[in-house]
């Protein structure tokens, strides 16, 4: 029986890794990769999980795809517990870990797919037709009978994807699906992901690329040091870090009094100060439309070299702000 109506739900999921060193005198060190993750993903949605290296994204993906047991908490996919109902879940979910590994390199792409089609129990009559269809969908038909070791990184990634969707999973986990791909291949991959959602597949995607998350994921979460630090739509996350608009002022250093003056401007929710060699950049998150670049220039009259730019707050800004806050 389903325990939840969400496609994916986690309740306080934790994961601790013990690593051991030494042979006779074993030394055990513990790493808390996940520290109580709560998430819910609607059926048929694309959900993005962002986070720096080591944040726990792959750990969470592996737990949800039944490849790793959580240390604590519970996780459900399609309403079924990933620990106790793994056998039921495996035919219904797909996993794309990507990268250079994970494929049999000395045999052809088609043979790789045949093997996994059999392991997934695709009916024999359906198998060849489905493989043809998938190869065409990922644009690998012409290379299908070549050895995988002759494939480029992008082609291997496409084969990973093909394997992940071969059995028509209801939920697909994509761990960094476009990492290392050239722009054209990455764009094709994103197009494929969108088409899968149109077919009703729920996608759980981890990525480093902010534009990709912004483009693909209406809902996303930011994971940092094993905790979800924010979870919402991109628009709401912008508000969370201080507003839709960002003003950047750059010069050869600023006085504390100048920064304080900027901080007192109405609508300025946050100022981030960063050093770039001899120059300093002040990044102002602004909640209202009232403040213009000229208002900033007016408060910094002693900087003839001053440059002030206005732009929309990007997901990258949101990400960096939140991850930075978590780090402190």
């Amino acid at each position: 029986m389903s325990a939840t109506s969400f496609a994916i739900e986690t309740r306080g999921v934790t994961r601790v890794f013990d690593s051991r060193k030494g042979f006779l005198f074993r030394e055990v060190s513990r790493t808390e990769a996940l520290k109580g993750v709560d998430l819910a993903v609607e059926q048929g949605a694309i959900f993005g999980l962002l986070g720096p290296n080591g944040a726990g994204k792959t750990t969470l993906t592996k737990i949800l795809s039944t490849l790793l047991l959580p240390t604590g908490g519970r996780a459900f996919v399609l309403g079924h517990d990933v620990v106790t109902d793994a056998e039921w879940l495996r035919p219904r979910i797909g996993l794309v870990l990507g990268g250079e590994r994970g494929l049999y390199n000395r045999i052809s792409g088609r043979e790789n797919l045949r093997y996994f089609a059999d392991l997934y129990g695709l009916p024999t009559a359906e198998r060849e037709r489905r493989i043809e269809e998938i190869l065409e969908r990922v644009d690998l038909s012409s290379a299908a009978d070549r050895r995988v070791e002759e494939y480029s990184r992008g082609m291997k990634q496409k084969l990973h994807l093909a394997r992940g969707i071969l059995h028509r999973p209801q939920v697909l986990f994509l761990d960094e699906p476009t990492i290392g791909l050239d722009p054209k291949s990455a764009r094709e991959t994103r197009k494929l992901v969108r088409s899968l959602v149109a077919d009703g597949v729920t996608i759980f995607l981890t990525t480093h690329y902010m534009f990709e998350a912004e483009e693909l994921c209406p809902q996303l979460a930011i994971l940092s040091k094993g905790r979800i630090v924010a979870r919402d739509t991109v628009a709401r996350l912008r508000q969370l870090v201080g507003g839709d608009r960002t003003l950047e002022a750059e010069a050869y250093g600023f006085e504390d009094s100048e920064v304080s003056a900027l901080r007192r401007l109405p609508g300025v929710s946050k100022i981030i100060e960063e050093e770039y060699g001899p120059r300093t950049r002040l990044t102002l998150r602004v909640r209202t439309d009232e403040i213009r670049p000229d208002d900033v220039r007016a408060l910094l009259p002693d900087h003839p070299e001053l440059e002030v730019k206005e732009r929309r707050t990007s997901l990258e800004d949101v990400y960096l702000d939140l991850v930075e806050e978590e780090a402190h």
């Binding site: 219904r92 392991l119 129990g121 009916p123 028509r168 009703g200």
Partner: peptide
């Protein structure tokens, strides 16, 4: 989307592995 995966045939999986 309907999952096409059927009940896995263990015999077929063994042959696939062979």
């Amino acid at each position: 989307m309907e999952t096409v995966a059927n009940e896995v045939s263990r015999g077929r999986s063994t042959v696939a592995s062979l």
